[in-house]
Structure formats: structure tokens, C-alpha cells
Amino acid sequence: MEIASQCLLVLQKELRHLWRARARATATATFALACLFLFSFAGGLDGDTLRDNAAGYLWVGLLLASTLALGESFRVETEHGALEALLLFPVHPVALFLGKALGNMLTLLAVGLAMVPFAVALFDAAPREGVPTLAACVLSGSAAIAAPGTMHSALASRARARDVLLPLLLFPLVLPCVVAATQATRLAITGDPMNQLGSWLSVTVAFAIVHWSLGALLFPLVVED
């Protein structure tokens, strides 16, 4: 139906725009890697603590990098009035939200997966539960951050002091999913004897479902003028 097709078109635009501006995406990924280095020095360099904290470093690094990607995703829309032009075509606001959120999710996933090999090397954090499980953690975490991230970057991009406002609004909100994703990732790395990983993953999935649906419900109110 129309929303689905419009959503795919918006996603296609997001991906084409990201590809054309890929220099920026690689800069965001490099920033995330710099965070990994920073945290390892901050947390102490001995092997065990590094491996145990690897998941936390990965997720906090990805969260910090996500503010760059999310802030950019709506700067592009508001800078030359593109958002208003889209709404006048008309594009259904829900399709706009889903398309942009999917774009942001894929960006976060790409940055997250790019960080994994470095984290494995730096922290000797080869995932005992296997790479697919680790990738699943990164995917569900990215999906969970993308929805509220898209909502709040839409809010912050049209307010003053947008660069401080986005993290200030986003971090308390994504705290539960970062906690759950970190636990799941930690279990994926250090082994999951009592297989709790699945339940932590289900927390991030539940979080994603709630925020994707709330986002679709409330996004039209955010973009109306």
C-alpha cells in the first residue's frame, strides 16, 4: 500500500544520500573506533577487564557515534526545507519516519559491525557464542536505538542548541536498550553458560517494537507546522 512504497522510496533516498556522502559515514565509524581506544585506556589495559568491558565499550562508543549520524540525518532535511517539500508532495509522515529510521538503523548497524573486528582484536574479545550471535546483538541494539533516535533528532533538529539537545534527550531514553544490548553482547563474548543472552535480546527487541510503534504514532505530530 502507499505508505510501504513511499517508505521504501525514502529509504532508497537515505541510502543513496549516505552513499554519496560516504566520507561522512566513514568519519563517524572512525570516531567510534577512536572511542574504543579511549575507553580501553580509561578502563585499564589488563586482559580480563578489557574482555569483560569490551561489550560496554562497544555500545557506548556506538551510542556516541550514533548522535553524529542521527544529527546529520535531519540536518539534511531541515537545512534547505526538504522536509516541508516532501510533506507537500504529499509523503505520508509515517512513511517518512519508517524510511528514515530504517536508514538510521542500517547506518548504526554498519558502524557497529565495523567496530566488531577492532573490538575483537583490541580486547581479545573473540565471541565464544559465535559471530552470528554477536551480529544479532548489534542488529537488535541498532534497531532499538534507531527509532527513538530518529524521533529525537527530528525534534532537536528544529530547536536551538540542537547538538547538545539530541544526546541530552536520547541517552536517558535508550538507557534500557543499551543495558540489555551490552549484557547480551558481553554474554556473546565471554560465553553464556546459563543462556540468558536470549532473554536480554528479547528486551532489546521489545524496546524496539515499543519505540518503532510509538514513533510511527507520534512522528506526524513532530513534523506538523
Partner: peptide
């Protein structure tokens, strides 16, 4: 109001 609704619903997860 939108941010407040999202923030309040989130407290259960926290």
C-alpha cells in the same frame, strides 16, 4: 509532550 510521553513509557523498561 511527545518527548514526555516517550520518556514516561520508557520508565518501565528502565
Amino acid at each position: 509532550s511527545v518527548a514526555s510521553a516517550l520518556g514516561y513509557v520508557n520508565v518501565i523498561f528502565v
